[in-house]
C-alpha cells in the first residue's frame, strides 16, 4: 500500500507484510551483506549497488544504486534512534543523478502481525511549513491531480 499522506504532514506512508519475524526483518533490513542481496534481488538487468552500514546512533547507512556509473542515485541515512527489532528512526538525504538533494525524516517500524512482520515506513519533513500547508489544503488536492495530469500529458 502506498499513499501520499495529506492529513497531517506531507510525506510517504507505506506498509508491507513480510513472512519473517521482526528480528529477522530488522536484521535483514539493517545488515549490509543481506541488503546487498535483497536491494537488487528483483533487478532484471545487473546494475550498480553499493551498501555501507554503521549501525549505531549517529552512524550512517549509505546506499548507491543505478543502471550505470553515469546514472547513480545515493541515499545516506543517519541513525537517530535504533530500537531492535521494533523501530528505526533516521534522517535521510537523497541525491539524484543531476546532483539535487533532499533531506527528510524516516521512521520504520517492525510489528509482529499475522505470523510475520508488518513493516511501516513513514517519511516526513519536507522543506517548509508552507509545503505542509500546501498539501493540507483540501482545495489544493484536486488541483494537484490536475497539475499532475498536465505534467503527464506534456
Amino acid at each position: 500500500m502506498t499513499e501520499l499522506d495529506t492529513s497531517e504532514t506531507i510525506g510517504l506512508r507505506m506498509t508491507r507484510q513480510l513472512p519473517a519475524t521482526p528480528e529477522e526483518v530488522f536484521d535483514a533490513y539493517t545488515d549490509a551483506e543481506q541488503q546487498k542481496i535483497w536491494f537488487s534481488i528483483l533487478d532484471e538487468e545487473p546494475g550498480i549497488v553499493e551498501i555501507e552500514v554503521d549501525l549505531r546512533v549517529g552512524g550512517t547507512q549509505k546506499a548507491v544504486w543505478g543502471p550505470d556509473r553515469d546514472t547513480l542515485f545515493t541515499e545516506v541515512q543517519t541513525f537517530l534512534e535504533i530500537d531492535r527489532p521494533h523501530r528505526l528512526v533516521t534522517e535521510s538525504t537523497g541525491n539524484d543523478p543531476s546532483g539535487q538533494t533532499m533531506t527528510t525524516h524516516v521512521v520504520v517500524t517492525f510489528e509482529p502481525h499475522d505470523g510475520g512482520t508488518l513493516v511501516t515506513v513513514e517519511q516526513t519533513g519536507f522543506p517548509t511549513p508552507e509545503m505542509r500547508d500546501f498539501f493540507e489544503t483540501m482545495a489544493w488536492v484536486g488541483a494537484f491531480d490536475r497539475i499532475e495530469a498536465y505534467l503527464t500529458r506534456r
Binding site: T2, L4, L12, M14, R16, L18, P19, A20, E24, V25, A28, Y29, Q34, I37, W38, F39, S40, I41, L42, F73, E75, S92, G94, D96, Q100, M102, T104, V119, V121, Q123, F126
Partner: peptide, 20 residues
C-alpha cells in the same frame, strides 16, 4: 522527490518480500 522516495521504498519492500 516524492517519486524518488516512493520508488526507493518500493524497491526496498519488494526486495525484502522477495528475499524472505
Amino acid at each position: 522527490w516524492i517519486s524518488f522516495y516512493q520508488r526507493l521504498w518500493e524497491r526496498r519492500l519488494d526486495g525484502l518480500e522477495a528475499y524472505f
